[in-house]
Nucleic acid binder design. Sequence first.
DNA 1: GGAGTTTATGGAAGATAATGGAAGATACTG
DNA 2: CAGTATCTTCCATTATCTTCCATAAACTCC
Lengths: 260, 260
Amino acid sequence: MHPEERRAKIEAYLQAAEFASLEELAQHVGASVSTVRRDVAELEEGKSIRRTHGGARILQPKTDEFVFNVRDTHQVPEKESIGEACAALIEPGQNVIIDSGTTCFHVAKHLGEKVAQVITNSLPVAHLFSGSNRHEVHVSGGVIYPRLGTLVGPDAVATFSRMHADVAILSGSGIAEDGIYNSHALIVDIQRAMIAGAAKVIFCIDGTKFERRSTFFLCDFAKVDVVVTDTGAPAALVETLRARGINVVLAAVSPRHPTA
Amino acid sequence: MHPEERRAKIEAYLQAAEFASLEELAQHVGASVSTVRRDVAELEEGKSIRRTHGGARILQPKTDEFVFNVRDTHQVPEKESIGEACAALIEPGQNVIIDSGTTCFHVAKHLGEKVAQVITNSLPVAHLFSGSNRHEVHVSGGVIYPRLGTLVGPDAVATFSRMHADVAILSGSGIAEDGIYNSHALIVDIQRAMIAGAAKVIFCIDGTKFERRSTFFLCDFAKVDVVVTDTGAPAALVETLRARGINVVLAAVSPRHPTA
DNA sequence: GGAGTTTATGGAAGATAATGGAAGATACTG
DNA sequence: CAGTATCTTCCATTATCTTCCATAAACTCC
C-alpha cells in the first residue's frame, strides 16, 4: 500500500476509534510500526491528529460524521488483549460475523486486512471498516438501539438467518456452568441467529463476567467452539469449560494501552 | 488505445477508487507503467489528480453528490438552506424515508423532534438520530459503499420495498426537463424503491444541478410532489416544473451560513 | 504513394524516496 | 528509582522515479 492511501486509512481509522496504538494502526494498514510512526508524524503536521505516547488520537472528532462513541471505561486493557488474542484465531480470508458490544469492537480493531468480508449489526464496527476498499462490510437491517449503535429487531434477526459465515465473534454479559447469558432480550435473538449461521463460534468475554448470570439465557455450550477471556477469569470455570471440549484462550493483559 | 482515451479511463478509475498504484492503473488500461506514469503526470497538469509515490490520487473526489466528505462540501450554504426549507414541509409525527447524500443529511439535521420514525440507508443520518430516545431509526440492510457511508445492494432495495412512509426525502445529481438523474447505479435502484414506498416524494437538489444529466436516469416527474432547491436554480426549468404541477420551493440562501 | 518528421511507447540505468529494523536516548509505570 | 515501553536516529534494503534511448506508429510534405 502506498503512503498517501495508508495515511488516509489511518485518519479514517482514528475517526472511528478516536484513539489507537501504533501497533494497532500498523496491523490495520499492514505496515510496520516504524512506517506508521512516520505517517502519524506526517499527519500531525496537517493538524488532523495528535501524536501521543504509544499511539495517536483524533484532534477534532467530526460531529457531523457517523462517528459512534466507543468510549467504554470498563476493563479496557482486558478487552484490548482479548481483542488481540481473538483476532489471532482468525484465518486470513475468512468471512466473519461480528457482534455488537465493546469487546467485539476491540476484536474488529485487530482484524486488519485478514478478513475480506464482515457481517455485523454494530454501527461502530461497520464504520471501522467503511473507509477501506479492501473490506466488504455487510450491515444488517434493523432499528438502532439508542446509544449503543446496535441494530436490533426482526430485520436484524432476518439478516443473520439468511447469512452464513466461517466464524462468528460474539460477546455476552455473563457466563456460567450452564451457558452464556446476555442482558438485552432483543440482542439475544440476533445472537442466536448469528450462532446458527456460523461454522465456528467464538465468544469473547472478559474475566469479570465469569460466574455471572444476566437476565436472559443465550445458549449452552453445544455450539460454542472457543471462549476468549483474560487471565482474570476464575480457574474453576475455565477448567469446567475445557472439560467440555471448549478451547479457552486466556489473553495476558499487557500493561500498555493507555486509558483514553 | 489512444492517449486521450487512456487518460480518461485513468481518471474515471481514480474517481471510483480514490487511490490507485501505477501498477494497478497500468493493468487496468493495458499499458506499461512508464506510459501510465506519463499520463498521470499529464493529468496532474490539468489539476484533476495528484501524483503520489507509487500511484495517484483523485484531487476532488466530491464532484459527486453522494460522496460524504466532511472536509469540504460543495454548496454548503445552499444545502443548509434547502435542508431548512425542506424540513419545514414535514408535518409533526410523520414517518420519513431519508436518502443518503449530503443534501439529505442537511435536511435530517433540521428535522429535530418533528419526526418520530426515520428510515434510511445513510449511516451519517442514522448516527444523527441514534443518540435520541425520541426517534426510532430504522436502518436498511446492505453493503457499505466505500467512503459514502451508504448502504447499497439487494438487501437495501428489499428493505425499502417492504417499508412504507408518509414522506420520502431524496436527492439526485442532476435534474432536467425529462426527469431526475443520479450517478450511482446501485443507489438508483434503492431510490426507486424509496419512491414506491412513500405517499409523498420530495427531492432536494441544489441549483447547480439543474439542467444537468448524470449517468443514470432515476425517474420522471410523475411521482414527484415537491422539489426543494435554492434561488440559484435557473428560472426556466423551475417554471417548467411548476407547469407540471410540482411544488417548487426556492430556499433563500441565508447569510448566516458562510462559505467554508 | 513514399521519405522524412513528429509523437507515442516500453524498457534500462542511475538517482531518489520509502520501508523495516536496530541501537541508544527518552518517557512512562509502579 | 528500577524496569519497561516507546521514541529518535540511523542504516541497509527495496521500490519507485527520472532521464534517456531505441523502436514503432502516425503524420506531413512532396
